[in-house]
Amino acid sequence: MIRLAVFTLAFLGLAIIQNSFFASLPGVLPLWPLILAVGVYLLQHQSLTAGAWLIAANGLFLDLFHLQMVPAETISYLLTALAAAYSAKHVFSNRSLYGVLACGSATFGVLKLSQMAILGLVWLREAEQVDWTVFSRETFWSGILLMIGLLLLFPFAVRIKKLLHKSFFVSQRDTF
């Protein structure tokens, strides 16, 4: 129960930073997918469950507060969480930075593909509602910022692991 409360508070803290602070910054910085980066980090280094829940919860949060990039973000983020958990468990290693970056790329790819599928449906109904150039530009910058986020998190992996372990937040995953 304590873990659930800590997890919820941590998620809300990250959601506030992403949707209130980052969203108010200039340039392309509002597109920084902070929760996705932390989710991938958790999946790879801490706990598959916590990482997947964090990513899935973000979709629900965006839909509840009407901050979506595309409609029905819950579906996109749920699919992304499942794909990320699967790839972190069976495909990518967490020993190297490359493994973490590859897992991040795969996760981001699934998110964008599912968003594209939803936008495609919108486009089939009302073509003027979708601008693929804007979507591509936002995807490009969001992807770059995700990689930067993962690069920033990776060097502190050991320290964060110890901190989270001490705070009973999540159990550690073994290196594999």
Binding site: I16, A23, P30, L31
Partner: peptide
């Protein structure tokens, strides 16, 4: 209290 970030939708709460 929060803002959407995509050009596809301009919302804030």
């Amino acid at each position: 209290t929060s803002r959407s970030v995509s050009k596809h939708a301009t919302h804030f709460t």
